[in-house]
Design a protein around this nucleic acid. Sequence first.
DNA 1: GTGGATGCAAACTCTTTGCACCTTG
DNA 2: CAAGGTGCAAAGAGTTTGCATCCAC
Lengths: 133, 133
Amino acid sequence: MERHTRQRQALIDALTHSGHALSPPEILARAQAAVPSLNLSTVYRQLKALHDARKIVRVDLPGQPARFEALCHEAQAAKRGHHHHYFHCSDCDRVYPIHACPGRMAHLAPPGFEVQRHDLTLHGRCAGCATGH
Amino acid sequence: MERHTRQRQALIDALTHSGHALSPPEILARAQAAVPSLNLSTVYRQLKALHDARKIVRVDLPGQPARFEALCHEAQAAKRGHHHHYFHCSDCDRVYPIHACPGRMAHLAPPGFEVQRHDLTLHGRCAGCATGH
DNA sequence: GTGGATGCAAACTCTTTGCACCTTG
DNA sequence: CAAGGTGCAAAGAGTTTGCATCCAC
């Protein structure tokens, strides 16, 4: 992450301008609008670099390929990925962040288990799909 | 799922006798104790058949390879996979079912979103690992 | 005996890596 | 011009599939 390249910028733009998390192939397709020669390997390498630099978040949902999301400026300034969860639309397959959390879940685990964190994924239909597209 | 074969039985035994969810390679290793010639392809085919027959549950955790769990007899009799969640131990990497649920989560989604179901994964240390192995 | 199940190898998806070439600073 | 980044192709995990052989019924 030392040099500024067109491919990195195209990638960041693609993530920033999308309202939802994108998969590596989706990122490739969108970023290729700006840099047609862009390669999937470069996408993966940049994603890793941006993730290590805490500029993007990896969104892993159960049984699904990884998606990535741009970190908002407030979160980047705070130097921490704000804790949040995701909504997966079973119609359009998009993933939306949810800025709410049901709270600590430690009481759900059996006695003796130390709960450190939790992941929550909601499934259903997003507002767009629910209203008949 | 029409014939009874040694490999299917070995696979079912491996899943039934384990206290936690197993990955396909783990299932292969355990079932090969009974049927040494057992092949990974057969494991995958049997897992698919058993899953379609509602005899096992697929456990997908975010960012992790699939695991499988035997359905308890009550659940099989009820013809439905009882709704539950999982605890993932970051020390021993085992996955334990949790027979508790925080309840409906519909209120966490933005207005207009229809929540149909949710997945919850707890992460931390299991009782065995927390007490110093 | 026959069709479903198995074993093996090849194919497929997703992701990572080696290496020569190109580009940024 | 030197180091880091890129593109391409090959290599890895995890999973699926085609096909000849095998074996449960």
